[in-house]
Amino acid sequence: MPINNISGCIGCGTCVSTCPTDVIRLNKDGKAEIKYPEDCQICHLCRMYCPTDAITITPEKTIPVIVSWG
């Protein structure tokens, strides 16, 4: 999971607009939800912008990763 957990969310929506790749959306409770984890580029902007520091991120990607050599 790239964005692992969101807890302590106050529903301000900052992370939603801050995410360059549109990974996070507000759910029907008005809380931030990791909606499109496969598009997360693990850049941590959401975490750094979150006023309540509610977002925890781990470095793994949810889909296979293609690199130039391996």
Binding site: I10, G11, C12, T14, M48, C50, P51, T52, D53
Partner: peptide, 15 residues
Amino acid sequence: AGILPQDAFIELITT
């Protein structure tokens, strides 16, 4: 690093 505490506070209470 991250949003400044005072900015975080303002964002918090204006939500």
